[in-house]
Design a protein around this nucleic acid. Structure first.
Lengths: 153, 153
DNA sequence: TATATACATTTGTATATACAACAGTTGTAG
DNA sequence: CTACAACTGTTGTATATACAAATGTATATA
């Protein structure tokens, strides 16, 4: 759908505004879809994301700052996010004895099991989201977004 | 920047996941930039967005549901969002006498003035965000995102 | 060694958002 | 005309997020 008809504006928006609105709007749709998938499992996208980051550590503990820097959407309270995951038994935390400022965060086997239950659902949702694009278009979209981030970041 | 290096994953992600992560990640950057611009003016992106919607009404009042359906990122409490704008004197609200379930929401002249102060800042931020794209690339990006929304929505 | 500075995380506070329940109004079938 | 369903918006509650200040630990320097 064209952005003009979504926003019900007849005016001719500058291209830059169209792009930005397109991205914001598309984000909203994707975010909603992913949320819908995760809701029955009682985790937010952010929580799911952190679990994946921790699994990617292959058994090595991660500090809070490592988790934070790898999160897709930086959020301003990783401590409390982790605490929620701890309450759900998906994650454990202890002080790093080498450097007591840091904490070692690791995913539990329950967390791993949990992830493996929903990985497939997320993957197929993602495939569904982009199924209207050809492979070339998909690659081009990735390239263009990367180009935006290059300077905008 | 490539998504793999951002996420520090060496593994070969499926294209669909790359696209999705790219969009989510790019959203975060754009959202942050727009927020930075608006913060000194003490309005959120959503609030700014609603003000623009109301201005687009050209003096005609809008109901809550109209505002809601035109918002870029639907949020689940337009009532309170409008109330914040009322507190700031940018907006006024009264019951629609024809249909007392509805409310007439209109932007005040203060709201119009406020918008005109920041329009330019937002426009130039948006231009800055996409300045690394050629015109053709910009059009293509818009087209591809539109294609995603077509089916994903 | 004492002190300052940097670092890593946590906590407090305000605001934003999601979701469900509620309340008043309107339209309509019988 | 009444009863009921649908519509429109508001409110309550829980959780999420942003931001700044605080806490505790490590490091550098005089």
């Amino acid at each position: 759908m064209k952005i003009e008809s979504i926003l019900k504006t007849s005016s001719n928006l500058p291209l830059s505004k169209k792009v930005v609105v397109n991205i914001l709007y598309t984000y909203g749709i994707i975010n909603g879809k992913l949320n819908d998938v995760l809701k029955p499992f009682d985790v937010s996208i952010q929580q799911f994301n952190v679990l994946r980051i921790l699994r990617g550590q292959n058994g090595n503990p991660a500090s809070l700052s490592i988790v934070q820097e790898r999160m897709i959407n930086k959020m301003s309270n990783t401590t409390r996010l982790i605490d929620k995951l701890i309450k759900k038994k998906y994650v454990e935390k202890e002080i790093n004895e080498k450097n007591k400022r840091k904490v070692n965060i690791i995913i539990t086997s329950q967390g791993i099991d949990f992830l493996s239950k929903i990985d497939y659902l997320i993957d197929s949702t993602e495939q569904d989201i982009v199924k209207s694009l050809t492979k070339d278009e998909t690659l081009e979209l990735i390239r263009l977004l990367g180009k935006i981030r290059l300077i905008a970041n």
